[in-house]
């Protein structure tokens, strides 16, 4: 299997969709001539033309809403937000239009639309550009939310997203674009709501998604050195969440630490902790621990930002507290 980057996997998924489905087009700010803020669509405009690759004005509400409108009459737009932080400007179109349209029309309308957006903190962009609103959007019924952690999942989940007849938030952690991994040459899709066991272990269940999985891998290595055998679960999608896989793992290990790369308060992991304790209380050997970004706006200063960001040390520390209970 060839090894490619996360960025290349997404590029491949977009290209094959444009080439195989006449109804697919992509639009967003600077995705054409500029090639995309993260170079995902470099060369697309030259290759596919301005009908399939549409540069938009800096009008997130208008072009996200236009995507919903185009989808509502049968096209399959893939809309890129330059940052998931910019979803705030288009929130009404995402929530009230993309997600609610089907329900409030009594099922008359489908919205087959993908909203791709880089997410995450850690590169000193300050409070407005560093947020992780996939956790907010995952709460909204009528929409799916996919958050790949590696190139193979990125391609498989993107294929599923584009083929879905529902709106999908596709959150790409910006730290991952250069990450390499093996991707099968054989066609495959990865369904939503099916978590991946990244690493098996018997002593402890670690849960996260996206870039958080990388943090857990580092933490698991550190814990292994202390003789703790951790299992890592990569959720892959935040809506729907594969509770079954998490519960089954916790029933095996009896302990769990869950990591949000978004702010801890209101993060998706509070939902998962709640569900798991309802379904697996009798198997728990201690409280389920939760690690997340500290509850302040994202600071610019590198030292401050790194302190706010949850890292492997925080996961290891939470595990120690859990085991000492």
């Amino acid at each position: 299997m060839p090894e490619i980057t996360f960025r290349e996997a997404i590029t491949q998924g977009l290209a094959e969709a444009i080439e195989t489905d006449q109804n697919v087009f992509i639009m967003g700010e600077d995705i054409g001539e500029y090639g995309g803020a993260y170079s995902v669509t470099k060369g697309f405009l030259e290759k596919y033309g301005d009908k399939r690759v549409k540069d938009t004005p800096i009008s997130e509400a208008a072009f996200v809403g236009a995507g919903v409108g185009a989808a509502s009459v049968g096209l399959r737009p893939i809309v890129e937000l330059m940052s998931i932080s910019f979803s705030l400007v288009a929130f009404d179109q995402i929530v009230n239009m993309a997600a609610n349209l089907r329900y409030m029309s009594g099922g008359q309308i489908k919205v087959p639309m993908v909203i791709r957006a880089p997410t995450g903190a850690g590169v000193q962009l300050g409070a407005t550009h560093s947020q992780s609103f996939e956790t907010w959007l995952a709460e909204v019924p009528g929409m799916y939310c996919a958050c790949p952690s590696n190139p193979s999942d990125a391609l498989g989940l993107l294929r599923t997203s584009i083929k879905s007849d529902n709106p999908v938030i596709f959150a790409e952690h910006s730290h991952l674009y250069g990450a390499r991994g093996e991707v099968s040459d054989d066609y495959y899709e990865i369904p939503f709501g099916k978590a991946r066991i990244d690493r098996t272990g018997d002593d402890l269940t670690l849960v996260s998604y996206g870039f958080g999985v990388r943090v857990l891998q580092e933490a698991a290595d550190a814990l292994a050195a202390e003789g703790i055998d951790a299992e890592i679960i990569d959720l892959r999608s935040l809506s729907p969440v594969d509770f079954d896989t998490v519960v089954a793992s916790v029933q095996k290990t009896g302990r769990a630490v869950m990591l949000d790369t978004a702010r801890k308060t209101g993060g998706i992991m509070s939902e998962i902790v709640s569900e798991v304790q309802e379904r697996a209380m009798d198997w728990l050997d201690g409280p389920i621990m939760r690690v997340g970004a500290k509850d302040v706006p994202w600071p610019y200063n590198r030292g401050l930002e790194q302190d706010i960001l949850p890292d492997a040390d925080d996961v290891v520390e939470a595990t120690r507290r859990l085991i000492s209970v």
Binding site: F25, K51, A61, A62, F63, V64, G65, A66, G67, V68, G69, A70, A71, S72, V73, G74, L75, P77, D92, Q93, N96, M97, L101, M104, S105, I109
Partner: peptide, 24 residues
């Protein structure tokens, strides 16, 4: 195509429907 209750929110949606006509 609705019936939209957030003031002005229906305008982008309509632009998208018009875009689909141009596209097709």
């Amino acid at each position: 195509m609705g019936g939209h209750a957030i003031v002005g929110a229906q305008l982008p949606l309509a632009a998208g429907i018009a875009l689909a006509q141009q596209y097709q």
